[in-house]
């Protein structure tokens, strides 16, 4: 069977029907984008291969368990798994002590710095993602005030004008939004500190 022009959904259906060749096509179709995404951030060929492998082990497990439901978004879903594994790697690496060279100048310090920046920005991105999901769970009026204040950086006077309420109401909604957000963070165990 020729899968060279098959869509992801067709490859997945065939794979789940027992055609292992479909998985090979699926991996080979996306390997370059996923592996590039990993190696650019990890900068280590062995680790990047490990993370690529772990990513697809999760993909295979999920597909075989019949839990995959991201219709038409296979690549984004797989990239998300890879992204989370990269973050896990950086978090683990941060906890592990490393040997430091004693020379006054070491080129690896410069490389390490840039990798830390990538790490920090990825963790920040993850935290922001978590925070946005929690904000979406707030009551509509509270969500609106919080977004206008923090993301659009409007003053409470401007928020009051825009939402057609008094400044006190806008302030009150903001206060409840923060209280509820804190509760949601505790409930979902989201930690905003890096």
């Amino acid at each position: 069977m020729d899968f060279s022009k098959a869509k992801d959904s067709e490859l997945i259906t065939n794979y789940l029907s027992g055609n292992e060749t479909a998985l090979e096509f699926l991996i080979k179709k996306h390997q370059q984008r996923i592996y590039s995404y990993i190696i650019i951030r990890i900068q280590d060929e062995d680790l990047a291969n490990d993370i690529f492998q772990d990513t697809f082990v999760k993909v295979i497990n999920t597909l075989k368990r019949g839990k995959y439901n991201e219709e038409g978004k296979f690549l984004q879903w797989t990239m998300r798994i890879a992204h989370n594994l990269i973050i896990d790697h950086f978090r683990k690496a941060k906890r592990m002590p490393t040997m430091s060279p004693t020379d006054e100048f070491d080129i690896f310090n410069i490389i390490k710095d840039s990798r830390l920046n990538v790490e920090a920005s990825m963790i920040k991105e993850q935290i922001e993602g978590d925070l946005h999901k929690l904000i979406e769970q707030l009551p509509e009026e509270q969500k609106e005030v919080l977004k206008l204040r923090h993301f659009s950086e409007l003053s409470f006077k401007e928020i009051a004008d825009q939402t057609d309420v008094s400044i006190n109401t806008a302030l009150g909604r903001m206060r409840y939004a923060l209280i509820n957000l804190r509760k949601l963070m505790e409930k979902n165990r989201v930690n905003l500190l890096q």
Binding site: Q31, Y35, I40, F52
Partner: peptide, 15 residues
């Protein structure tokens, strides 16, 4: 590294 691919043995392991 932007246009690299995983090692053949990595893909083979997955299959």
């Amino acid at each position: 590294g932007a246009h690299c691919k995983p090692r053949k043995e990595t893909v083979q392991f997955l299959l």
